[in-house]
Amino acid sequence: MKHKTRRTLNFWALFSAPALWWGTVLLVPYLIMLSISFYSRQFPFHVPDFQFGNYAILLQDSQYYDVLMRSLWISLSVSLSAFVLSYPLAYFLAFKVRSERMRLFLYTATIVPLWVSYLLRAYTWKTILGSEGILNSFLMWTGVISEPSTIFLYNQGAMIVTMAYIFTPFMVMPIYASLEKIPVSLIEASKDLGAPRFMTFLKITLPLSMPGVLAGFTFTFGLSIGDFISPILVGGPYSNMIANVVATQFGMAMNWPLGSALGVVLLFIVLGVITASDKLERVGRLNMG
């Protein structure tokens, strides 16, 4: 008995702080958001209520559907771009760099931008992509174009480039971690049995790195669908994202119930993505036997 009591005490000594943290800054706020999403808007604020009117507005007014679809499409594009950029980089780091010191240097170089403010990095892209920016100056210098092009900045493309750059470290880190764990013996066995390099990659390396890819995808997708800075900085008239609409509802509109309903929808989308990636990972594990 005494032993058990001590274990219980130890358990709470260790976990009461995280439990308190989890409860007060995550669980309780989510519950508050959920309950406000059922409140009624009443100028200038809202009154407690239990009704589904706010969700009905989201379904009836096509502006919310448009913004939601745009947010999904942009987050998906960001995740795919980040994946295409990150996988070769992570592969190179894990398998091609022989020197340990070099690997550490390159890995640090990849993640060091995370220590620079998000705003600063997004602003930098403005100076690169703008009408009188670095890219336009370069293209004019080389003679590819004769006058500055406006197609690089203030549109969805600029947002995808900026976010893909900013969120790439979140894709590289998990992919690198999973590639690094693959036993070299498996790859050697495949080669010994006569499989060509590409076949070895497709059958051994890629499947074994899928958990990392899925984790990276989940991170980048979740981060970009909730982003509201890049639409303001590098987006144009067609760049409003779901998070911008949420911000407006909590701003001038002071329509917290509608803003909360949007927040709940966004939360469930991200939860859905996490669940799907978790399921996919399990399927992958079974296939590997």
Binding site: R41, N240, M252
Partner: peptide, 16 residues
């Protein structure tokens, strides 16, 4: 009807 005005401006920004 300030809500209707805000909603109008939001609809402009949301439009495809």
């Amino acid at each position: 009807r300030v809500d209707a005005y805000i909603n109008t401006w939001n609809a402009v920004k949301a439009a495809q």
